[in-house]
Design a protein around this nucleic acid. Structure first.
Length: 466
RNA sequence: GGCGCGAUGACAGAGUGGUCAUGUAGCGGACUGCAACUCCGUCAACGCCGGUUCGAUUCCGACUCGCGCCUCCA
């Protein structure tokens, strides 16, 4: 909407379903309905998880920059496999040790809060609706009943399953080769009829030797809990209807989770739920993906090493969301430095300039081309070196920052400096006046060790966090 | 075994059939008591082999290497 410019300026997004870049048009005139597969809250989010939500945040901001209001729904998967039976080893032992004496419900609540805090630290806008799987059990049961009535389900010893053979289109999103999969299957089918069939409802183990599940509900099929995929279908429909504009998730969801969501929706309504399917690629470290169970890095780890959260945001924006990114502390530091330099530069420029219309246009064009933040950042740096007057540079860059979300207006130099630090800095200044170079160098080293950097100038000195 | 993705300078990472990405680092210089900050200047790349083309890092094909999903995972 309201893109009165040429066609290249119109928002274009990559749709996994059609495997290509397409002009974005919304179902309703000025509202975009967006569903995001949120976190499973059984552990801390690592920075790879966070990258994906940052991608969503950019999408949201770009949509808003295009004049849309965004109805942004994200689920919290708080139905986990947090049973007391250890069916997948060491990871759960670690969790148990960390969270000893706490129920599955408490754990979900705890990690949800930790996740939301990370969102805030990265200046990721809150969804307009945040919905928990455990609070929508009725909708899920109803959804399964609807599928049952249409004949897409069957029962096995451990649950109710979706029969994927009943849908000719199954797996189209992932371009799955069903026959090939079947031929090369590596997993035991259990009671399933076909490899791609999946659980809609799982029965609680009624074996008395096993400790009772902490999270379970009664249903028409018996006591149990919902399958992995049904929550997203049930909740997206609840909040956005059976057809909405954009569905987002990580690349790992293409093959299974989203294929199954589509299957559920096609089973019930005869159509797939979203116009656009968008997927963020993984962050990697040393060439490998990060994982919740293996070695991973959390935002809190970085913060405790003195890294500002928004430096991570900057780093992520230097790559495209559809590329794998190699994370390293070195790269993070280079981003932190770049970010700081931008802020110092902006702080030194006068306010009350006006946004340059040509550059504004170029910026919008870049982010409208499938959220090309790397090029948008490159443009930003070009603005700093452009012929514009300083107030206008500043206004233009702050306009960019509405999408980038880097708090470029923050002035690192004027940030509060503790009194004792300031005193040291003044002692050093006095030593310099006395030409006591040795003493002044010692004090400078000391301040640096405390994380503060002195910037000398003709008029005196300034001090800022390193 | 099935499906898919990638290979760009020291690092991170865009992009393009023939002109510069960008940031950090490096190098040279200015500034400085010495530094830092800042400023000016500067080096540097497109995995390998063929093909298409006047011309390919960019298009096509083979190869090598790497990665993801198929099992909870963004």
């Amino acid at each position: 909407m309201n893109n009165n410019q040429d066609s290249t300026a119109h928002l274009q997004l990559f749709d996994t379903y059609r495997r290509g870049l397409f002009p974005f048009t919304s179902l309703l005139e000025d509202v975009v309905s967006l569903y995001v597969c949120g976190p499973t809250v059984y552990d801390y989010a690592h920075i790879g998880n966070l990258r994906n939500y940052l991608f969503v945040d950019i999408l949201r901001r770009v949509l808003e920059a295009n004049g849309y209001r965004v109805k942004h729904v994200m689920n919290i998967t708080d139905v986990g496999h947090l049973t007391s039976d250890a069916d997948s080893g060491e990871d759960k032992m670690l969790k148990g040790a960390r969270m000893r004496q706490r129920s599955a419900w408490d754990i979900a609540k705890y990690f949800e809060a930790a996740f939301l805090k990370n969102m805030q630290q990265l200046q990721i806008l809150s969804p307009t609706v945040l919905c928990r799987a455990t609070e929508h059990i009725d909708e899920q049961i109803e959804y399964i009943q609807a599928l049952e009535i249409k004949g897409f389900t069957y029962q096995t010893a451990d649950g109710i399953y979706f029969d994927t053979r009943k849908l000719h289109s199954y797996g189209y999103l992932a371009r799955l080769d069903i026959e090939g999969l079947q031929a090369g299957k590596r997993v035991d089918l259990g009671g399933k009829r076909h490899l791609t069939d999946f659980a809609l409802w799982k029965f609680s183990p009624d074996n008395s030797t096993e400790v009772e599940r902490q999270m379970q509900w009664s249903s028409p099929w018996g006591v149990g809990f919902p399958g992995w995929h049904i929550e997203c279908s049930a909740m997206s429909e609840r909040y956005l209807g059976k057809k909405f504009d954009i569905h987002v998730g990580g690349e790992d969801h293409i093959n299974v989770h989203h294929s199954n969501e589509i299957a559920q929706c096609e089973g019930r309504h005869g159509q797939q739920p979203a116009t656009f399917w968008m997927h963020g690629r993984f962050l990697q470290m040393a060439g490998e993906k990060l994982s919740k169970s293996g070695s991973s890095i959390r935002l809190d780890d970085l913060i405790s090493e003195g890294v500002e959260p928004l430096a991570l945001r900057y780093l992520f924006l230097t790559s495209h969301y559809r590329s794998h990114m190699q994370f390293s502390v070195k790269a993070l530091h280079s981003s932190a430095l770049a970010l700081k330099r931008l802020r110092v530069m902006l702080a030194s420029w006068p306010d009350h300039g006006s946004v340059d219309p040509v550059l504004k246009n170029s910026f919008n064009r870049l982010v409208n081309r499938d959220l090309n933040t790397p090029q948008a950042l490159a443009l930003l740096w070009k603005v700093t070196k452009s012929e514009l007057c300083e107030p206008n540079k500043k206004a233009t860059i702050l306009y960019f920052d509405k999408v980038l979300g880097l708090s470029l207006k923050m002035n690192p130099v004027s940030a509060a400096v503790p009194q004792h630090i300031l005193q040291l800095a003044e002692l050093r200044q006095q030593a310099r006046v006395d030409k006591n170079w040795r003493r002044s160098d010692v004090l400078r080293e000391q301040l640096l060790g405390l994380g503060y950097q002195i910037i000398d100038s003709a008029e005196g000195f300034k001090i800022s966090r390193k």
